[in-house]
Design a protein around this nucleic acid. Sequence first.
DNA 1: GTACGGAAGT
DNA 2: GACTTCCGTA
Length: 453
Amino acid sequence: MSAMLQQTELIFEYASDRVNNGLQLDEHLASPAVIVEQVPHSHMLSYSGLACEQTHTDDHLLTTVECSESGDEETMETLVAAETLLNMDSPESLSLDQQHYTQLYVPSLGDVITSPVTHQLMVSVEDIVGALGQQQWVTLQRETVAEQPKKRGKKSKRPESPTPDITFKRGKYSKGNTLYLWQFLIELLQDRQACPRYIKWTNRHAGIFKLVNSKAVARLWGKHKNKPDMNYETMGRALRYYYQRGILNKVEGQRLVYQFASLPKDMVFISGDEDQEDQGNHEDDGDVPDDPEESPPSSDQSLDDLASYEHSFPPLPPSSRPGYQRSRQSSCSPATAQWHQPGPESESRSPAQRRTVLRPLGGSLIQQQHLPIVSAEMLRTLQNVQSLQTGQHGSVFRTAQLLGSMCERQAATAEQTTSQIVTLQLQPVTCPVKQGKLEVQTEEDPDSGLTRE
DNA sequence: GTACGGAAGT
DNA sequence: GACTTCCGTA
């Protein structure tokens, strides 16, 4: 079977049911229906509505962007640095051939992707395998506009999702282009100069971040919006408006800590191992380090670094606006909102740490904006599905076989990585069981993995 | 200082 | 529409 499979052109569709109907997937059993189709390359493009370019494996990897801990003292120095950050010009130097490069965090294939993925992802096997041992930011190529799904069939006004194109295209856009606040924050969170000095993830997988230096962040925001009088009070009001719109939640009890209702689609985690930051910084444990005592980097971010840093914000693609169909009054309060957090350590998490995968309510079963989940668990489950009769569950059957062969291949290539490209299109559907697509009974949970708590 | 949300303004 | 500004309140 595997012989006839081209790993270079696989499309994974998978489905899962989570919050809808009050059901929540046990992350341990996040084994949604997976439909794998083999499609011609050209087909893949139209499949996702993307005009993906040739992916060169070598282009995929970027350096891991890890935020080092730093202090948060409100000093003139930090503010100066903050201003420097925003005053930075954006030369074309990093334009990367007019391509939009989006960073994907792919720590490991062994676990789960928890992010709305509206785009087709091009991930090389090499990247995946390479990520097994170490967290890596994978850069993906994509077209800029017109790549996003056009219509969501949802309330038109409602922004779609806080899943901006996190691009680092430099110098392309002028000052006139502004980001929404949530985009701006995400940019900062991926900005080595701002993170973690001014803002940092406290639980990246859960989308929880902290305004380590609220003043500085507000000032940066004001700079970006050309509002010199911006302060945290004002910016905070904007943040609070995000509650109603389902873009942000407040992490109660923790000052300056907020949570994105959904992670940016670009921040796809195929993770198993939480990074250190998350491991050791479970601020939603109840631990409330108001003033992070995290020691600043050995030496402060030098102004030279800041000066050499190029930072520009791309214009807002109309289709990448934030938005959720979730009301604040829904069951997804900050305390109860649960993100899909797979991984071995998920069991050790308190219920409060498990977070709901928030996603837009959708009409069709398969929606691109759905949060994808790919996990080793899923792979295992699917392998179990191989016993299904092909006739009845053709696609699932194929999926199981495909994934099985992939697993074998990955194991085989763990050492000698290949450059083969795997195209993943991850699309959970609303309720695979209801659709009769797949009923996976696992030993752990006879409830089809659709329940929990 | 942080946080909330109403109201009005941009 | 997405904030910004101001405000009273906690």
